[in-house]
């Protein structure tokens, strides 16, 4: 899977706001922390898995991962029912945080539209402190994330170093 007209494998580097693509997380956060999100949440069907390989260099900036294998008690219904506006302009659509058995969440492209969606957003913000750190200490390290059952983010970049990550999206045929 890839972005429309985009390459299958994309290379990622810590990027300053001024140099970032208009709607990228770097445009909003620069070298600051990336909030927890699922990748391509604005796609009708977000990728099922994200593969990231440390293509070159190492880094002291960890990737943050929050597994959500089981929905929190008391919020199961809100995850499936609370509606978000997803995406922008003509391609925007409504969707809950959990649909088709998978998670979709990114405050960069999803806006909560009702009380239940707001509760989901507040919960995920609050639980971001429980995210585990994954460190890129070795070149060629590969991280495979279940994009529909875990959120991920990035800690603030203090030393950009020469880290270069390669990213590939995978979708499982229905």
């Amino acid at each position: 899977m890839s972005r429309p007209a985009g390459p299958a494998i994309e290379f990622l580097r810590p990027t300053l706001t001024a140099n970032a693509g208009r709607r990228s997380l770097s445009a909003r956060h620069g070298l600051g922390a990336f909030p927890l999100h699922s990748d391509c949440a604005h796609w009708r069907r977000p990728p099922d898995f994200v593969l990231i390989q440390c293509a070159s260099g190492t880094s002291t900036t960890p990737t943050l991962i929050l597994p959500l294998v089981k929905l929190p008690a008391g919020l199961e219904s809100a995850f499936r029912q609370g509606m978000f506006l997803v995406g922008y302009g003509r391609r925007a659509f409504y969707a809950p945080a959990m649909s088709d058995g998978g998670l979709r969440f990114d405050e960069g492209c999803m806006r909560p539209l009702d009380g239940q969606a707001l509760r989901v957003t507040e919960y995920l913000r609050a639980t971001s402190r429980d995210a585990v750190e994954f460190h890129w200490t070795n070149e060629d390290t590969v991280l495979v994330m279940d994009n529909r059952r875990a959120l991920h983010g990035r800690a603030p970049v203090h030393d950009a170093g020469d880290r270069r990550l390669a990213r590939l999206y995978l979708g499982v045929a229905a």
Partner: peptide
Amino acid sequence: MTDPFDPDALFDKAKLFINRCFDA
């Protein structure tokens, strides 16, 4: 663009309106 006649889009919109109804 979301098709305005797409049943899934209509149902999701109905859900949103109902959620707002219950909020009120």
